[in-house]
Design a protein around this nucleic acid. Structure first.
Length: 454
DNA sequence: TTAGGGTTAG
């Protein structure tokens, strides 16, 4: 398409036909949609130097191009350029930019762009409200989200199903389950028809607040009313059932899901695997893990974390380590939570050194789980392996991972939380771990493990 | 001629 267009374009120029604004913009849009951003930039430059100057549409297309290629900064620069060249940005300019900032989770920029729209008295499309409200509530700013919602209603803009859904979800997540249900009723009263995503949010809210049977009723209702029941609805209920110890029902629901032709996603598999590991059905969990691979469903860092936790719970240390290695081999980046699962399991099975080795390997990969040592020290103290905790603390300082003062604080806290108040006090009163000279550098350092000798 | 949403897990 682009090649043919360029050919025609060249013929036009050769025959002395000067493209008009419409042709230029059309050309720019084709280039941008084909991700030929640099070519679009060149056309833009030609226009700027020629007779047919870029108008608001040309700018909007260029901004779209920058946003599509992740160059949000350039896109914002183009907006300022428009203002300098006195080409007034319109609602499409702002909406394109707000969308890009929203995708990058830069809600502060969404807000300031939105405010500019308000100041310029531009017509605000419902989608702009949608993005700003969703962005605010995602950041936990429920109150601010509702303020924009009220302002939207005042301006005569009707809230659509997405805005209502985002607000219901925000209420549910901030612990106002009842308010969420009230808002759901209000939405229906106002003639806004809930869709499958709204039901997903409602069902999830019910599951999280322990109203599982009500969630199951909604599922039944959905089937009766022929509402599309999506994988999220199933995952939420399967998770709720699993966490409530109703694993057989969770499994049945998974089968129902398959019967109804709803494809389980990785969330769904993970929740069911989690349910299996929690009730000791580790073999079933591993079977499901293998099935994910067979059906081409991505095994994520969550899948591995759940299984590593489950395998350690069943004292299958080698299998858990195998799972960890498999994850690394597949190029899946471990998260602090996944390392926590591994390190806790290893520490509790007496393999503290192995956990430290994995931690060093992670550091060489550039992955540093921030609370790793703290977690390990806490878990060792909690299990009564205080001597190992102290040895680990020494190891941490020896490897220059942390300062003696910081490790000392962590150890005191861990001892206190584990109920070992005597040792915590002893450590507080002693000089172990921290001996500084008068310039503030470490003079000599006593080992934490000496806590047992004095 | 250009823009377009919200939900789920360790």
């Amino acid at each position: 398409m682009v090649g043919e267009l360029l050919w025609i374009w060249r013929r036009m120029i050769e025959n002395g036909i000067e493209p008009n604004l419409f042709t230029y913009n059309f050309m720019m849009d084709v280039l941008v949609n084909s991700m030929c951003i640099e070519s679009a930039e060149r056309v833009f430059d030609v226009m700027e130097k020629g007779i047919v100057r870029p108008d608001v549409v040309t700018y909007n297309i260029m901004i779209k191009g920058y946003c599509k290629s992740g160059k949000t900064r350039d896109a914002k620069g183009k907006l300022r350029e428009m203002e300098m060249k006195r080409v007034g940005p319109d609602k499409i300019t702002y909406l394109t930019l707000i969308q890009a900032c929203y995708s990058e989770e830069d809600i502060a920029s969404c807000m300031s762009l939105f405010n500019e729209m308000v100041e310029k008295r531009l017509e605000i499309p419902s989608h702009a409200y949608s993005l700003v409200i969703s962005g605010l509530v995602k950041e936990g700013k429920c109150y601010e989200g509702f303020a924009i919602f009220d302002c939207m209603v005042k301006n005569g803009c009707k809230a659509n199903v997405a805005i209502h859904t985002a607000l219901i979800d925000a209420l549910a997540k901030s612990g106002n389950g009842e308010e969420a249900m009230k808002f759901f009723e209000r939405m229906k009263d106002e003639g806004c028809e809930p869709d499958d995503v709204t039901y997903g949010v409602i069902v999830n809210c019910l599951c999280k607040t322990g109203k599982l049977d009500l969630a199951l009723e909604y599922l039944k209702f959905g089937h009766e009313k022929n509402i599309r029941v999506n994988a999220v609805v199933y995952s939420s209920i399967i998770d709720g059932l699993g966490k409530g110890g109703r694993v057989d029902e969770a499994e049945k629901l998974y089968e129902e899901m398959l019967d109804k032709g709803c494809t389980p996603d990785s969330y769904c598999y993970n929740t069911l695997i989690d349910a299996f590991t929690k009730c000791g059905k580790i073999d079933e969990a591993v079977t499901l893990f293998k099935r994910m691979e067979d059906v081409g469903c991505d095994q994520t860092v969550y899948t591995y974390t759940i299984l590593i936790n489950g395998l350690f719970k069943e004292h299958k240390t080698d299998k858990a380590l195998e799972m960890w290695d498999m994850m690394i081999d597949k190029g899946i980046t471990p998260t602090p939570a996944s390392f926590r699962a591994l390190s806790i399991g290893l520490c509790l099975s007496g393999k503290v050194a192995r956990a430290c080795k994995v931690l060093d390997e992670l550091a060489s990969m550039g992955v540093i789980p921030e609370t790793a040592f703290e977690d390990m020290i806490h878990v060792l103290c909690k299990a009564g392996h205080v001597k190992e905790a102290c040895e680990l603390a020494d190891g941490i300082v020896d490897r220059d991972h942390e300062t003696p003062g910081r490790v000392r604080t962590v150890l005191i806290d861990a001892l206190r939380k584990a109920g070992n108040v005597d040792l915590a006090l002893k450590l507080m009163q002693s000089q172990i771990g921290i001996q500084y000279d008068r310039w503030g550098s470490i003079k000599t350092r006593d080992k934490f493990r000496n806590l047992f000798e004095s």
